[in-house]
Amino acid sequence: MRAHDRIIPLHPRRAHVTGALPPPPEGSFASDNAAGVAPQVMAALAEANHGPALAYGDDPWTAAATAALRAQLDAPAEVLLCWGGTGANVVGLATVVQPWQSVICVDSAHIVVDECGAPARFTGASITAVPNVDGKLRPEALDPYLHWLGTEHHPQPGVVSISQVTEMGTVYTVPEIGALCDAAHGHGLVVHLDGARIANALVACGTDLATMVRDTGVDVMTFGLTKNGAMYGEAVVYLRPELAASARYVRKQAGQLPSKARFVAAQITALLADDLWLDHARHANRLAGLLADRAGAVEGVDIARAPEANAVFAHLPAAAIAPLQEWSFFWPWDLERSQVRWMTSFASTEADVERFAAGVSAHLDAVPPA
Rank of each mutant, 00 (worst) to 15 (best):
H147K: 08
E242D: 14
A370M: 01
E140K: 08
T62G: 08
G229K: 06
V312G: 06
S328A: 15
A38V: 09
P139L: 03
A196Q: 13
G92P: 13
E299K: 08
P155H: 02
A351C: 05
N33E: 07
W331G: 06
W148G: 00
A297R: 14
A53P: 02
L73Q: 03
G229D: 12
L202W: 08
T226Y: 13
Q156P: 11
P307W: 12
H147S: 13
S328F: 12
V340H: 11
P24W: 01
H154E: 11
V353G: 00
R262V: 07
Q98T: 09
A351E: 14
A38W: 14
S361D: 09
T166W: 09
V220Y: 10
Q40N: 01
G117Y: 15
A204D: 06
W83H: 15
A3D: 11
R282E: 13
A292F: 15
T216H: 04
N310V: 05
L81K: 00
D134F: 13
T166P: 06
A322N: 06
L137C: 14
L146K: 03
L239S: 03
A71R: 09
H315Q: 08
G27H: 01
A67R: 15
P9G: 00
G57E: 01
K252V: 05
V97T: 12
D334W: 14
E140I: 10
A184D: 15
P23T: 00
V113A: 08
I198K: 04
H185I: 10
L290K: 11
V171H: 03
V250R: 00
D143C: 04
L193M: 09
A129N: 11
W342H: 02
A318N: 02
P323R: 05
A270G: 05
I8A: 04
F223A: 04
A284R: 09
V79F: 07
D182P: 09
A35V: 04
P368E: 10
V367P: 12
